[in-house]
Write a protein that binds this DNA or RNA. Structure first.
Length: 784
DNA sequence: TGCCCTCGGGG
DNA sequence: GTGTACGAGGGCA
């Protein structure tokens, strides 16, 4: 046994608590600087909350209740003034909701909805990396290398210990669910190693548990494990009367409504969700994402016929399964989400898991609750209202559509955070006596009278970000490290605005959010008006950016002009406006947020295209749409507008004439068990599945079905299943498809005055003179 | 315009 | 476990 005063430096990964015979123990799981897994235990912390000016009835009731450990009088600022409150401390965190509900019948209640482990973190003011002083204990139920009973904590600078990531994938029978194999890929010390588990299903399940205990991964991943593999595993363990004990304290993963799992000691991060959050892709299948990132796809196994494939060639399926686990792991690593969240954990002072699996409002809580506690400011409960009154957003400037040259783009640096700081906007400064009046008539106290908590925190973050950016330049060896952190600070600053604006966040109300956007709209409109009064053509503006035409038609003078304007306006507005880029040319549209441009400055981005607002992600899309859109875009970006319009017409008329490959019209979607649909008859996917069954084809709920629309007129669509390799002998509703394609392409061509109807009716006699006739080039759409 | 329903990924 | 996903699109009132 070690002596006292030993310490460990720990990066926190998860936090939770459990009940033991002699009380509740908070468990902080993490990794030491040396890379050892550790659980840090702390006993004796108790849950509490506050009653505001409570009537004696509730106090008497509570004072006789043995569940209540103690009650103390305190003073807290709440709803504009300091009030007498009572701090109620309980024995058991899981009983808090009951006492909160009871108390709410009598008075306002504060800080009664903070998860217990987070309450602990706030009260000990822990960061994401801590030095733990304590004593090492026997391992007991834990799978970690170290078990420590903590005596005290100290905050230390952040570090990134090596993390171990285990990715897995299951192949199972579509008919009866039986697991054939589990493929595993493990990331450790910069290398990936692959394993697989086969055999009798019960053996597989047991070996999987042993594998997790032995490998002791920090992060568990896989592709759509939240929605599929974890659920399936839970069921299969249950079927054999086994427990799915993969936690670091040998507990089960717990499903928190829908697809979202929590586990003591390990972070479950689904690679698919990571992809959704980080990349905005039209297709998010493992195949598509792997191709997109690595130019490398899955192995060749027909998973719609997995039972047959398994019978035919088990080795092949095992390889396929291992490959999927590996791809999911590489995707997770490639998109850098773990690093990003480690940086966010550092700036939000949270364990990794809390950053990943809690809403962004909780990130803000992490800083704001601590700050409120330090100032004896009451922490209100999160609003009960589900719906948020929508506040008015940013200002979007519009002018006539057209082609512009030498367009300077200026952007505000952290506009909303800057505005919050500049006007001292906070729930603590909201006051009828305020000297600062927002455009919506809401008043805030000036900084001299009372500095707001939120502006104070944001100013600190702003300063921290500037420091990090400075270090990035001064210390090129650690550039990536500082860059990651400064980006995380930026995300957190914007999150502050996000929670203030979007809903009933515990510390705010819509008046505050609306004031922020109103100040912002006033600012940008004022800037546009000033530029116009100087005779500068403002082309576009959106929320925190302004696009205007340079009076010069060369790069050097335009750069100089943009720089000068950015400086002038920044000085005048006392906000920082940055000269972001020059677009040459630039196509502006009408009211909607759509434009295209080619960057010619700064040099690093030279030649890149900026395309905004044209993509639509319909769930019933078919290949021809995206192919057509891409082809038309290529024309436009070459400057061949006339050619683009002609191509769009040509495609639409080809579709209407039925001169397109049938496969390009296939729409596909999954179909659940019919009983899950409120209105199954109205759904084309259900209709297709029913017809499949009638045709004697196999249909299993959850399967993806493909179909072609054969008649879209009438009250509901008639669709016909499409089976690859089988001849399709119905006639597609080409009018319907032509309309859909025209709708897609019109999003582009209506910028040039060619709308959906126009594309459809296909009158070819538009004036060719305007843009000059170009020679027809070979395109993707030379169907003949 | 706002609300409700559905989907996506996986086998 | 002091909790209860997520964002986007379509249909409909």
């Amino acid at each position: 046994m070690r002596c006292l005063y030993v310490y460990w430096d720990v990066r926190l990964l998860t936090a939770s608590y459990s009940r033991e015979e002699d009380g509740v123990v908070v468990e902080l799981y993490g990794k030491t600087r040396e890379g050892k897994s550790i659980v840090v235990r702390y006993k004796g912390f108790k849950p509490y909350f506050y009653l505001v000016e409570p009537p004696s009835t509730i106090l008497e009731k509570f004072s006789q209740d043995p569940e209540i450990y103690k009650m103390e009088e305190v003073e807290l600022w709440h709803k504009g003034k300091v009030r007498k409150c009572v701090k109620v401390t309980l024995h058991s965190p899981w009983k808090t909701p009951r006492y909160r509900r009871e108390a709410l019948e009598f008075c306002d209640v504060l800080a009664a909805d903070i998860p217990f482990h987070q309450r602990f973190i706030y009260d000990f003011d822990l960061g994401s990396c801590v030095r733990v002083y304590g004593k090492e204990e026997e391992k007991g139920k834990y799978t970690t290398e170290l078990v420590v009973n903590a005596e005290k904590f100290e905050n230390i600078g952040d570090f990134k210990p090596p993390l171990k990531i285990l990715s897995f994938d299951i192949e199972n029978s579509m008919k009866n669910g039986r697991i054939f194999t589990i493929g595993i890929a493990i990331w450790e010390n910069g290398e990936i190693r692959k394993e697989s588990i086969e055999g009798d299903e019960k053996d597989i399940l047991w070996k999987f548990l042993e594998m997790i205990w032995k490998e002791d991964p920090d992060i568990i991943t896989g592709y759509n494990i939240d929605g599929y593999d974890l659920e399936l595993l839970s069921e299969r363990y249950k079927k054999y009367g086994m427990d799915f004990l993969i936690g670091r304290d040998k507990s089960k993963p717990q499903r928190i409504v829908g697809q979202f799992w929590r586990l003591h000691g390990r972070v479950i991060e689904d690679a698919w969700w990571a992809v959704k959050k980080e990349l905005r892709l039209k297709q998010e299948t493992l195949q598509a994402v792997a191709m997109h990132l690595f130019g490398e796809g899955k192995l060749d196994v027909d998973r719609t016929n997995i039972d047959e494939e398994w019978e035919k060639d088990k080795e092949k399926v095992i390889e396929y399964c291992k490959k999927d686990a590996e791809l999911a792991l590489r995707i997770l690593l490639q998109i850098g989400i773990i690093n990003k969240y480690l940086d966010l954990a550092t700036v939000t002072k949270f364990p990794l898991e809390d950053v990943i699996h809690s809403g962004t409002s909780t990130w803000v809580d992490s800083l704001l609750i601590r700050e409120a506690d330090r100032h004896n400011i009451g922490v209100p409960l999160q609003g009960q209202e589900r719906k948020s009154r929508k506040i008015e957003g940013g200002y979007v400037h519009t002018i006539e559509p057209g082609l512009y040259h030498w367009v300077c783009v200026l952007d505000f640096k952290s506009m909303y955070p800057s505005i919050i700081i500049k006007y001292n906007i906070c729930f603590t400064t909201l006051s009828k006596d305020g000297d600062i009046v927002s455009p919506t008539g809401v008043r805030f106290l000036s900084k001299e009278k009372r500095e707001g908590l939120i502006p104070k925190l944001l100013a600190e973050l702003m300063k921290k970000r500037d420091e990090l950016k400075r270090k990035m330049k001064e210390d090129p060896d650690n550039r990536d490290y500082y860059n990651g952190l400064q980006k995380a600070v930026k995300i957190l600053m914007n999150t502050f605005y996000g929670v203030l604006a979007s809903s009933f966040y515990r510390f705010t109300n819509p008046d505050i959010g609306a004031s922020i956007t109103a100040f912002a709209r006033d600012t940008i409109k004022r800037i546009i008006a000033e530029l116009e009064s100087e005779g500068i053509k403002v082309v576009y503006g959106d929320t925190d950016s302004v696009f205007f035409q340079s009076p010069y038609e060369d790069l050097e003078n335009t750069i100089e002009f943009g720089m000068r304007k950015a400086e002038e306006i920044s000085r005048r507005e006392k906000l920082i406006l940055e000269f972001e880029k020059i677009l040459e040319p630039f196509f502006s549209h009408g009211a909607k947020k759509r434009y295209v441009g080619r960057i010619i400055w700064p040099d690093e981005e030279k030649g890149n295209m900026v395309v905004r607002g044209y993509e639509i992600r319909r769930t019933d899309s078919f290949d021809l749409q995206s192919e057509a859109q891409r082809a038309v875009f290529e024309k436009i970006l070459d400057g061949d507008i006339q050619g683009a319009i002609e191509l769009a017409r040509e495609i639409v008329s080809k579709v209407r004439a039925g001169k397109v490959p049938i496969e390009s019209l296939v729409i596909s979607r999954t179909v659940k068990d019919f009983k899950f649909y409120k209105n199954p008859d109205s759904m084309p996917n259900v209709q297709a599945a029913r017809k499949l069954i009638k045709m004697g084809q196999e249909f299993i709920p959850g399967m993806k079905v493909a179909w072609i629309v054969v008649n879209a007129r009438g009250s509901k669509q008639d669709v016909e299943p499409y089976i690859p390799g089988m001849e399709f002998n119905r006639k597609p509703d080409y009018r319907y498809y032509a309309r859909r394609v025209a709708e897609t392409l019109a999003r582009i061509t209506d910028v040039f005055g060619v709308d959906e109807e126009n594309l459809l009716t296909g009158s070819r006699q538009i004036s060719l003179g305007a843009f000059g006739k170009e020679k027809k080039k070979k395109t993707l759409f030379d169907f003949e």
